[in-house]
Write a protein that binds this DNA or RNA. Structure first.
Lengths: 359, 359
DNA sequence: GCTCGGGGTGCCGGTGTAAGA
DNA sequence: TTCTTACACCGGCACCCCGAG
């Protein structure tokens, strides 16, 4: 096992070489004020000569923290989580923490592994976003209180800080937007049944129909997974169940991009024949043809907030009640649901735009 | 600082509760054979009652390794590195290691930070892919020998295991393919000057021109960054310098996708007016319109190899000479360089294909 | 008595080894 | 033998102590 391979010197060796005590070396290395300039220089010379680097493990054992937090996401290939990760990374770096990323691939086992890393003090804190909040998951949160932030809704009494987004409202905004455009038969391509995100989306979809007086029909809904290929194949099934669709709401942008691709293959025009809207606001929305309308769920913002909350706890700044922070989705209208669709069709459009914030 | 927050019990407390010594608890927890069934049960009961989880830091201090490796990539938002990360992750999990991901954002500082994490024994091993191999970088490799694998070419004498891809050959394959299609004026959109990937690509580009008897002209080359937006803006500059382009080679797929997007806006047909080829083989190639021809650099394969090499070293299985593994790029022909372009124009094409392996 | 620079040492929480029942 | 214990030790850090000014 061990091997402690090419370690170059301990604090004792440096101390011996510099002719001081280990305590002094420690003070110099940690920029403690209590040392004279000349001693400092002698020590630093010895450090340089030996190539001494403090052993992080030993330091952690003594100080009680390892200086590292982790972010666990279901799929690091999903641009939404990349945006989230970059935001957390920014916070961590600014506050002097090392961030490590873990991709759970949606597996419970991996999520629990991350929580156990926390319990075993491999890391000091954890931000985790889970697609399905299970009982086992909630149970494992108990012993690591104050060192976890969950992104995604958890039951109210759960003893963690929690960052939420009203994705139900987001779904409602998207669908109401389609309806207000004149769409009457709006298909919904949802993610896998039973996951937290898919539950709130279907709920928002129904709310929107209700608020505008449209009927819900299960013919208008299909499930698939949250990827481009998922949307690509799901739209076929949807069109089979309901050939005269005039609008599609996809549960995320990746799926919506797949839908655009397939509709183009089937020579259906967007938004003329079918208006399409996604959710998340990934970069690809502005590259797609036509550019994709969407509802942003503010992944980066949630990441930033989660990072701050976690570090406030872990650094001991915050000891109060469990925080519940909710961010509000915003509609971004682009070409795929453009109101000007009749006039602009067939002519070159303007380049990828930032999307027009709306409402 | 410290805080050792909600830690639940140490090995001593468990030992006291079970009426045994700490050493016995340690043996039980680690499934050491030397212990009687009844003692084992008593200990396990005590463990469960207290909710004891071994302190990973303390264990690491004694055993000399932390059970964690890291993968540092320039940009976790790049699908190439995602593919690489997933491959490494698979290897790490299979061999019982924890993998953490770090995104350096191309910053030297962050790369050196990762190397210092290694030197300070925060992690046991590191796989790192760097865009620019600097002297400072090479210098920092010295003290952590045998615990680093570099993906991307380093000087021959560098004391690390090294996984390479002949990206120069890859670039040559791409450009020769365009020439063999009949292209005469092939623009090249390269990444930032001075990076390792861009250097080998321009070299391959020139080799291809030479091998087919075409002239090199600096008018045909522009630089930008390795993103969709990079390609999107670079093609404008390229067309300004050379309005009658008939082929474009982009240094990676992301840029090529940006090119496709811009060409569509400018109503230029692909491949009819301009053939386009990228490099990397990211998933988007099969979703783009038209589907994007490319040269795969086998990112996942390189990740897998790097993972195995690193763990062989870190586990002490391998102590021999520094390994140099080279993988060979392969051309994948899709619609954006389709030979059938004249015939198929204007009709619906077949769906996203896997690409036809070639040569 | 107080400040300042520096030294001695117990300790963090496990693990491995040699000795003991 | 077979199981268990005592104890040194991993490598820093932080507290407390000391002497000199």
């Amino acid at each position: 096992m061990a091997r402690r391979s090419s370690r170059r010197g301990t604090i004792q060796e440096v101390a011996r070489l510099a002719g001081v005590s280990p305590a002094t070396v420690s003070r110099v290395v940690n920029n403690s004020p209590r040392c004279s300039p000349e001693t400092r220089k002698r020590v630093l010379d010895a450090v340089a000569q030996i190539g001494y680097v403090p052993d992080h493990v030993a330091r952690s054992l003594k100080t009680g923290n390892v200086g590292e937090i982790a972010l666990a996401v279901p799929d690091i290939g999903n641009p939404v989580y990349v945006a989230m990760a970059k935001a957390v990374q920014e916070v961590a770096a600014r506050r002097g923490w090392w961030l490590s990323l873990a991709s759970t691939e949606g597996s419970q086992t991996e999520e629990l592994r991350a929580l156990r890393a926390l319990a075993g003090r491999r890391i000091d804190g954890l931000i985790i976003t889970s697609l399905t909040v299970s009982a086992a998951f909630l149970r494992e949160l108990e012993p690591v209180q104050g060192r976890v932030v969950v992104i995604g809704r958890v039951p109210d009494e759960t003893p963690v800080d929690n960052v939420r987004v009203e994705s139900e409202t987001g779904a409602r905004l998207a669908v109401e937007h389609l309806i207000d455009l004149g769409c009457q038969r709006i298909g919904f391509i949802n993610g896998m049944k039973g996951t937290v995100p898919s539950t709130s989306r279907i709920s928002g979809y129904k709310l929107a129909l209700g608020s505008r007086g449209l009927e819900y029909s299960s013919n208008l809904v299909v499930n698939s997974d949250f990827t481009i290929m998922g949307g690509y194949e799901a739209i076929d099934r949807l069109l089979e169940q309901c050939p005269d669709l005039d609008g599609v709401f996809a549960a995320n942008d990746a799926m919506a991009i797949g839908v655009l691709r397939k509709l183009r293959e089937r020579s259906m025009r967007v938004p003329d024949d079918v208006a399409v809207i996604g959710m998340d606001d990934i970069d690809l929305c502005r590259i797609a043809t036509p550019t994709l309308s969407t509802v942003t769920l503010l992944a980066a913002e949630r990441g930033r907030i989660a990072g701050e909350l976690l570090l406030d706890r872990v650094e001991g700044r915050e000891r109060g009640e469990w925080q519940r922070v909710t961010v509000l989705p915003r509609l971004l209208v682009r070409e795929s649901t453009s109101l000007l669709r009749k006039e602009q069709r067939g002519t070159a459009r303007q380049g990828p735009g930032a999307g027009r914030p709306h409402s």
